[in-house]
């Protein structure tokens, strides 16, 4: 089985993110680039599946120069090879264009399964997995908290507000995973040493068969019109318990329509 894991390099999750004032895109210089945390769960799931069923894991990323660090991290965790899709024409692509570009890049390789993290910690749209499945014409099994493969059949627990649905499809398919699914491994020292020697194929828009007119900021279907700092958190309500703390708590929750 061949699994492609799509990963994204994002600004450090814990750092405060800034937007560039002129383009309103993320200022990538303002913080350390890291592998999107949710993608580590996708990599872990792919590694576990290939450990159980055999096969290989290919990690694919689209990003600027330096995004290969995200691929190396995945390779150090145990993925077998990488694909780095990088081209100035892709800068500023929105989710629609990104799904198109990734779908085209996936056309350069074979796969039985595509796994993604269910969202990236920078934009947090959760759109790309579903759009990608649509572009590829494959079943989408999103927000998976459990994945099982039996022959060519794949079953996932799909996380919902009320618990989970059990969703089944035939491979090939596109899966996005949530944090509940596993505990990602740390790259071993041997993995780190081996990662450098693993093959990473470099693609530009031409090599991936991407129409440059359909990607990048100019082609974006959405536009960021304005951005503002989130206002500082305001002080909450403090209730001193004078024997009526329970009542006050219930009143508060009731006023907020929690109960």
């Amino acid at each position: 089985m061949k699994i492609v894991v799509c990963v994204k390099q994002v600004p450090d999750t814990e750092a405060e993110k800034r937007l560039l004032p002129d383009t309103l895109t993320v200022d990538r210089e303002s913080s350390n680039p890291v592998l999107n945390e949710m993608d580590e769960f996708a990599i872990e799931e792919a590694l576990k599946l290939t450990e159980a069923h055999g096969g290989e894991v290919v990690v694919l990323t689209m990003g600027p120069d330096g995004a290969d660090a995200a691929v190396r991290k995945a390779l150090s965790m145990g993925a077998h090879s990488g694909i780095l899709l990088s081209d100035p024409a892709l800068a500023g692509s929105d989710a629609v264009a990104t799904s198109y570009a990734i779908a085209q890049a996936l056309g350069t390789t074979e796969y039985d399964l595509v796994i993604l993290g269910s969202e990236a910690s920078d934009a947090r749209t959760s759109l790309v997995p579903a759009m990608l499945a649509e572009r590829l014409g494959l079943p989408q099994l999103t927000f998976a908290s459990k994945v099982e493969i039996d022959g060519t059949s794949i079953t996932v627990n799909r996380l919902t507000d009320y618990g989970h649905d059990v969703v089944q499809a035939q491979l090939p398919a596109v899966v996005s995973v949530v944090e509940k699914i596993n505990e990602p491994r740390y790259p071993s020292f041997k993995g780190i040493m081996a990662a450098k020697k693993k093959p990473v194929a470099a693609l530009d828009v031409a090599a991936a068969g991407i129409d440059a007119a359909l990607v990048g900021q100019a082609a974006a279907a959405t536009t960021v019109v304005d951005a503002a700092q989130r206002p500082p958190r305001s002080a909450g309500v403090k209730v001193t318990d004078e024997g009526d703390g329970g009542v006050k708590l219930a009143e508060f929750l009731s006023a907020q329509k929690f109960i």
Partner: peptide, 26 residues
Amino acid sequence: DEVGRAGYLGVSLPEEHGGGGGGIAD
């Protein structure tokens, strides 16, 4: 245990004996 499992305790020991094949610098 977790540091050991990840191979970080053994980074400087020879690979043929379960280490990482690196050095004391690692």
